[in-house]
Each structure stands twice: as structure tokens, then as C-alpha cells.
């Protein structure tokens, strides 16, 4: 089976720092790949390489079989990006933001009805949808991010600590939305520091350490406790 997201021996050097050191991974349609790792392990760098925000020093990142540096725009059309803080226009409402970004992404107008439906699906009612983003909580912004991603019909979601800073209820709702996307066949690559979240939503779990992918496990094959001790083991070796 061909992966929607594929990293092939990707390395990235920032001056002296080797942020990524030959990382290879694959995320298939309908899979959620959770990337764990200490601060500075290289998670964000990998996400940024998929989005072609930065170019790899060597190796190749592919989306649906296409090299992201050579087919940057086409590759981005297949992906949806949700960072730790989804950045939206403060003076526009959630609805306006969604319609704007969706139209930019798809070249098609997103009718208001449909947009409101999408927002309702992520848990924002019409009153909320019509309020300006500057009045939104962080959780509400993340939900708009998901709505944009669904409106885009992306084959892959790339999420960088999407639930950090969300309260447990909001984080849980968010995970639920990810599972819905996964069930629709989306390939999801998400970074997180939340083991519980990873075990709960992930079909695969990867652990990164100093630019390398040191573990790549099926979530079903490992218990929460085992995952925790494995994770801590890699953390404690961090300074070797």
C-alpha cells in the first residue's frame, strides 16, 4: 500500500544543528500517525518539510506520491495544516474565515449554508460562527482549523501540537474530529506531547529523539503503560 505521506531518509541541517537525521516514515489513508518527542527533537521541522515551508537538506518528502519541493503547490492542495494555534483573521468572523480560506484552497465558492454545516459539525453553532475570531477561545479557533481542513477535502492533515493548551474537554472533542476525518480516509500526521492523546487517537506512534525516528509502533500493539516507559526511556537518554 502506498502512503499518502512519505518521508524518505529526510535530513535537515540548520548550521551546526542536525534537526532531522534520515527520518523515514509513511502514513497511509485512514491512519493517524502520532509523533512524540522531547522539545527540539525535530517534530515541527518534519511537518514544515512536508508543507515545503523549509526544504530538506537531503532526502525527499512526498504527498500522494509527489515530491513536495518539486510540486509544492499541488502537494499543498492535498494537505491541510493545523498548527498549535490556527491563525485566522481577527476582524473576520469564523464563518468568513472559513469561506475565505476554503475558497482560496479549492478555487470554488463555499456557499454559506455549507459553511455553517461544516462549522456545526465541528461544534460551532451559527451564533458562534458569526462572531469575530478576535472573540474566539483557542479551542474554537482549532475547530475552525478543522472545518477549513474538511472543506478543503484534503487527503492528508498535518497537525503540529494541535491540542496543546486546550482543556481536556476541548482536546477530547478535537480528537473525536480527527477520528472522524481518519474514518473518512484521511491520512493524519500529528505531533503531540500528550501520550494519552497519542494512544487514544493514533493508529501508529512514532518517537523522535535528536532528529531521528527511534520508534515506529502500531498503537494497537502497545499498552499505555508500555508506551509511557518506552517514551521515558528515550527522554532520559536525551543528553547522551
Amino acid at each position: 500500500m502506498n502512503g499518502i505521506l512519505e518521508a524518505l531518509a529526510v535530513s535537515k541541517r540548520f548550521g551546526e544543528t542536525l534537526a532531522l537525521d534520515g527520518v523515514s516514515l509513511q502514513v497511509n489513508a485512514g491512519e493517524v500517525f502520532c509523533l512524540l518527542g522531547a522539545n527540539g527533537a525535530g517534530k515541527t521541522t518534519l511537518v514544515n518539510i512536508f508543507l515545503n515551508f523549509i526544504a530538506p537538506t537531503s532526502g525527499e518528502a512526498r504527498v500522494d506520491g509527489r515530491d513536495v519541493t518539486r510540486h509544492a503547490l499541488a502537494a499543498k492542495r492535498d494537505m491541510a495544516y493545523i498548527p498549535e494555534q490556527v491563525m485566522l483573521y481577527g476582524v473576520l468572523s469564523g464563518l468568513e474565515n472559513l469561506r475565505y480560506f476554503a475558497a482560496l484552497a479549492t478555487d470554488e465558492d463555499l456557499p454559506e449554508r455549507r459553511a455553517l454545516d461544516l462549522l456545526r459539525q465541528v461544534g460551532l453553532d451559527e451564533t458562534a460562527a458569526r462572531r469575530r475570531i478576535s472573540e474566539y477561545s483557542k479551542g474554537m479557533r482549532q475547530k475552525v482549523g478543522i472545518a477549513i481542513a474538511s472543506a478543503k477535502n484534503a487527503k492528508a492533515f498535518l497537525l503540529d501540537e494541535p491540542t496543546s493548551g486546550l482543556d481536556p474537554k476541548a482536546a477530547n472533542e478535537f480528537s473525536q474530529l480527527l477520528r472522524t476525518a481518519r474514518d473518512k480516509g484521511v491520512a493524519v500526521l500529528t505531533t503531540t506531547h500528550d501520550l494519552f492523546h497519542a494512544k487514544q487517537t493514533g493508529s501508529r506512534i512514532g518517537i523522535m529523539r535528536r532528529g531521528r525516528l527511534v520508534e515506529n509502533l502500531l498503537a494497537a500493539d502497545i499498552s499505555h503503560l508500555d508506551l509511557e516507559s518506552l517514551y521515558l526511556k528515550h527522554m532520559s537518554n536525551q543528553d547522551e
Partner: peptide, 14 residues
């Protein structure tokens, strides 16, 4: 500065 540029570019807008 707001981060919306990154958001926009991530959509595949040149």
C-alpha cells in the same frame, strides 16, 4: 506577524 500568511500559503496559494 499574525501567522495568517503561513496559513494562506499552506493552502497551496502561490
Amino acid at each position: 506577524e499574525q501567522g495568517t500568511l503561513r496559513q494562506t500559503l499552506s493552502l497551496g496559494v502561490s
